[in-house]
Structure formats: C-alpha cells, structure tokens
C-alpha cells in the first residue's frame, strides 16, 4: 500500500509539474499585465502557445547538426526529472533519493550546458552571445547556490530535500539570520537562473541585452515548444524549491492519508500563486540591469550564502 501510494504520488507529481508549469508562467504574465493596467492574455495562453508550436513544422538552419535537434528533448528531460524530484506537495516521493539538492542543481546545469551548446551550433553571432553570457551568469550563480545548500545542510544535517523540508517544518528550527540570508540569496539565484528581470528579460527580442532568448533564437516549432516548456518547468522548480525549503508547511509527509495529500495539493497551488504574484510584482518594480552589473548582483547572493554558512559555524542558533 505504501509503495503504491508513493509511486502514485511520484507519478502525480510528474504530471502535476508539467501541467502547472505553463500556467505559472501564464499567471506571472497576467499579473504583470494587470499591474501595468493591461488586460493581458489568459493564463492558459502559454499552454496554447506550446500546443500550437508543437503542431507546426520545425524550420532548421542549414548548418544545424544533430546536436541542435536532440538538445531540446535532452534539456526538457533533464529539467523534468529535476522538477519531479523536488517535493512539491508531498515528501514521500518514490524516487526522491535518486538525487539530492546538489544533484538537482547539477541536473539543471546539464540542461544549461546543452542549451548553450545548441546556441552555438548554428554559428550565428546571437547564439554565441547568449551562450557566452549565460555561462558567465551561471558561473556566479552556481557557487552561490552551493553555498546556500551548505547552510541548509548545516541546519538540517542533510542535502536530501525531503529531509530538509521535514526539518524546516519542525518547530526546532525557528527564525534564523542565516536562513534569512539563504532565502534572499536563493531568490537572487532563482531570478538569474530563470532569466527574469533584473538579470535578463524574458519578453525581449532584437535587443543586445538578451541572454536566454538569444540562445534559442534559431529554434522553431516543436523544438521551441520543448525549450519553452523546459523554461516554464524550471521556473516552477525554483518556486517549489523556495516553498519546500523555506515555507514547508502543509506538505504531506510519507504515510499520511489521501485527504492530507489532497489538502497539500491545494496548499501547494496557493504557494505557487503567491510565488508567481510576488515575482510579477518584483519584476514590474525594478529595471533590467546592464549585463556587466549582473555579476555584482549575483555577488550579493554569493556573499550572503557564504555569510550564512559562516554564521552557522559561529553559532548553531543563528
């Protein structure tokens, strides 16, 4: 029974993340539009876009190699697997022990690696530009993420996300300075990783400042759909990660009944909506940064991560 429920939860989670991811993107766009006094498209629009792209023929640049065609599926699969391993509404995932937080972050790194390579495959100036900048941003965001992981592991004694979530939900943790720093740092990293303002602009084109969009410029049709879906999944993953680590209340533990799981799904949906709204409000209130200011911005995350870790060494209570 336990195994069946765990498998069910795991399967449900895989389906849920993929169904919800474009909706979250749609929600962010909708809220942004409302904040700037536009009506905005329905939150179903990203799903409609993806389905439309899937049905269209793919136009491939003459010089594109097999890597260019294989990369979208690889990127999508790696992101999907990573998203399926982050506890969203339940910690009792059947396969959560397959990868800890470090491995989940590295899986996203694999996806980015192949995306950057695909960006360079056609041999255009824009593709290389995007790949080069993306790797620069990742170079600073990844160590910051690892230092955040360190401080979480110091508090929870584990890098396993389900264990971290369980420890964070217990009353033993309480409010800590180091965790506050970790939260700020994680938010900064999440903004950078998802190509959001102020690091990158997800809705820009024909602009020298774009990063993510420059890499995927040559993609079309089903390939583009896979990449868009992967990007939406990544956003969902980071919102879920922040929710699971810093706001773990309401996640159903292993062995709880069906009703608890249903309630947890509802609470999770609420968290996603809150996260998406907060992101939209933040994005409308700040301006995009120059590319060479981004390292300074990410440097804050790096420093906060390091400070949080060192504070925990000074005193376990901080």
């Amino acid at each position: 029974m336990g195994l069946i429920l765990a498998l069910l939860v795991q399967g449900l989670q895989m389906a849920l993340v993929i169904a919800l991811a474009p909706l979250l993107t749609g929600l962010v766009r909708k809220v942004k539009a409302r904040l700037t006094r536009r009506r905005g498209a329905s939150i179903l629009q990203p799903w409609r876009d993806i389905l439309r792209l899937l049905r269209k023929e793919a136009v491939l640049a003459q010089n594109a190699s097999w890597l260019f065609r294989a990369a979208p599926y690889l990127i999508f699969a790696a992101t999907w697997v990573a998203a399926a391993l982050v506890p969203t509404f339940a910690t009792g995932l059947q396969f959560s022990w397959t990868a800890d937080l470090i491995a989940i972050v590295a899986l996203l790194g694999s996806a980015r690696f192949y995306l950057a390579l695909a960006g360079m495959d056609v041999g255009t100036a824009f593709g290389g530009l995007g790949a080069s900048r993306e790797m620069m941003i990742a170079t600073i965001a990844e160590p910051a993420m690892l230092l955040i992981t360190f401080s979480l592991a110091l508090v929870a004694g584990s890098t396993q996300l389900s264990t971290i979530a369980a420890v964070m939900a217990s009353p033993a943790v309480g409010l800590r300075v180091s965790l506050g720093m970790g939260l700020v740092a994680l938010v900064i990293v999440a903004l950078a990783e998802n190509a959001r303002i102020p690091v990158d602009n997800p809705s820009t084109h024909l602009e020298l400042t774009m990063v993510h969009e420059a890499m995927v410029l040559e993609y079309s049709g089903r390939h583009l759909a896979m990449i868009e879906l992967a990007a939406a999944l990544k956003l969902l993953l980071y919102v879920s990660l922040i929710a699971c680590v810093f706001f773990p209340w309401g996640i159903a533990g292993p062995g709880t009944g069906l009703f608890a799981h249903l309630a947890a799904v509802a609470i999770y949906l609420g968290k996603l909506a809150l996260g998406g709204t907060a992101l939209a409000m933040f994005e409308t209130s700040v301006a995009k940064m120059r590319v060479f200011r981004v390292p300074d911005f990410l440097g804050i995350a790096l420093m906060l991560g390091l400070l949080g870790t060192l504070l925990l060494f000074v005193s376990r209570g901080l």
């Binding site: 023929e57 640049a61 003459q62 056609v122 255009t124 410029l217």
Partner: peptide, 12 residues
C-alpha cells in the same frame, strides 16, 4: 508534427 524544413539561419 514531424515536418522539418531546412532554411537559412534566422539570426534576427
């Protein structure tokens, strides 16, 4: 869809 067409690079 499995349709595929080769064309010159777009490059904005």
């Amino acid at each position: 869809s499995r349709a595929l067409r080769r064309a010159p690079a777009w490059d904005c």
